[in-house]
């Protein structure tokens, strides 16, 4: 009996060792970044079983041509292009990519090199060490940091964070970051109950996950503001954020 259980445990251990990771990257006009990030992912995840799923929303700048070239080099089984005909938004892009993910874990990251692939091993290590359901990258701790923000951007970011921390008690220090590792079933569960867009979406995901009692761990990451391409989130971000905060107060 005990022996049997031991074997089962070992089996589980082995499964964990060979866990597969699906790296989900939404893109819109990231022609200059996508090849760089794919190269860096392969460089930093040498002994890991992973696939890259790119959800491109019909970028007019030829992002998909570059992705096809990359498939020739790295293989179509490692780089999956799951395109959509037109720009349908980030939240649904994750959902779309997730449907095609075959890994035990799903890692979500931006294509614009603000999320450096060199941190991927620390996400994976943290998950293995703690057995967490979610590992989220946080910028506001020791060894973390941001580069390239002006004072105004820093101020809004700090203000937004203090407000959310005081009102929502989320238990996570960086709510709007989107560099995260999820157990696949957990992501499937959480994402279906999220309706927000933009920054609020990231916040909603992590707040709902903590409310559902999932185990969330953090790893420090640094964030260098995008070098190539242009930002797609803009306009009345602050108003949207405040609305999102109120929405989360009432629904979580």
């Amino acid at each position: 009996m005990a022996e049997e259980r031991m074997e089962e445990e070992e089996e589980k251990e082995r499964e964990k060792e060979n866990a597969k990771y699906s790296i989900l990257i939404p893109t819109y006009n990231e022609r200059l970044n996508i090849a760089l990030i794919v190269y860096l992912i392969f460089k930093h995840l040498r002994d890991v079983n992973f696939e890259i799923i790119i959800v491109d929303d019909g970028s007019p700048d030829g992002t998909q041509d570059v992705i096809r070239q990359l498939q020739q080099v790295y293989g179509e089984d490692r780089i999956l292009l799951r395109a959509r005909p037109r720009k349908l938004g980030l939240g649904t892009a994750y959902y779309h990519g997730l449907k095609h993910a075959s890994g035990d874990f799903v890692i979500i990251m931006d294509a614009d090199l603000s999320h450096h692939p060199k941190y991927l091993p620390s996400f994976i290590r943290k998950q293995k060490e703690t057995g967490a359901n979610i590992v989220t990258g946080t910028r506001y701790v020791k060894n973390g940091g941001v580069h390239g923000w002006n004072l105004m951007r820093k101020l809004t970011s700090r203000g937004a964070n203090v407000l959310a921390q005081t009102l929502l008690w989320p238990g996570v220090s960086d709510l709007t970051g989107s560099f995260r590792l999820y157990e696949r079933s957990v992501l499937e569960d959480v994402i279906t109950s999220c309706v927000s867009k933009g920054y609020v979406f990231q916040m909603e995901m992590i707040v709902r996950a903590t409310r559902k009692g999932y185990h969330v761990e953090e790893v420090p990451i640094t964030f260098v503001d995008r070098v190539f391409g242009s930002s797609k989130l803009g306009g009345s971000e602050i108003v949207e954020y405040l609305k999102g905060l109120v929405y989360l107060l009432f629904t979580t």
Partner: peptide, 9 residues
């Protein structure tokens, strides 16, 4: 938070 904003040039 602003004073000790972690940066990484």
């Amino acid at each position: 938070g602003l004073m000790f904003f972690p940066t990484c040039p």
